[in-house]
């Protein structure tokens, strides 16, 4: 693998900073993984899902900030006897962030870990 692997590796040797390991073997092993269908599927699915959730978080948070900046009156609307829509939305943003991380972790624990295990099995590891 590349140098990063060897940095202070497993608490034994000083990390060699200079040479890039010659890697006829590793090189082709990496290529095999990178082009395997399991790897491609795992990475494509997970990357896409990660960016979708990131986009959702950005839209919700900056939407909330946008409402505060441009429509204060809307946020002042009462939804309870005293509590306002802004209050509910603010707490909602906090809960949304938590739920979003939960959704990601749930999917990663099941789907992506399974794909990852498939991949490792196919590599005989």
């Amino acid at each position: 693998m590349s140098r990063g692997t060897t940095v202070g590796a497993a608490g034994t040797q000083p990390a060699p900073a200079a040479p890039r390991p010659a890697r006829a073997d590793t090189g082709s092993a990496i290529g095999r993984i990178a082009h395997s269908p399991q790897f491609r599927q795992l990475v494509a699915e997970r990357t896409r899902f990660g960016w979708i959730l990131t986009g959702l978080m950005l839209v919700v948070y900056f939407g909330f900030i946008g409402l505060i900046a441009f429509d204060k009156a809307l946020l002042a609307v009462k939804v309870g006897s005293t509590s306002s829509l802004g209050l509910v939305l603010g707490v909602g943003v906090i809960l949304f962030a938590f739920i979003l991380t939960g959704i990601y972790v749930g999917r990663a624990n099941t789907r992506y870990d399974a794909l990852s295990a498939d991949l490792k099995r196919s590599l005989g590891q």
């Binding site: 948070y61 946020l75 979003l100 990601y104």
Partner: peptide, 19 residues
């Protein structure tokens, strides 16, 4: 209410870190 704006700002970085 304005205190809540800060709370949300500090929290929403975490999903990004995760994803």
């Amino acid at each position: 209410f304005d205190g809540l704006i800060y709370s949300t700002g500090f929290l929403v970085g975490w999903p990004i870190v995760l994803f």
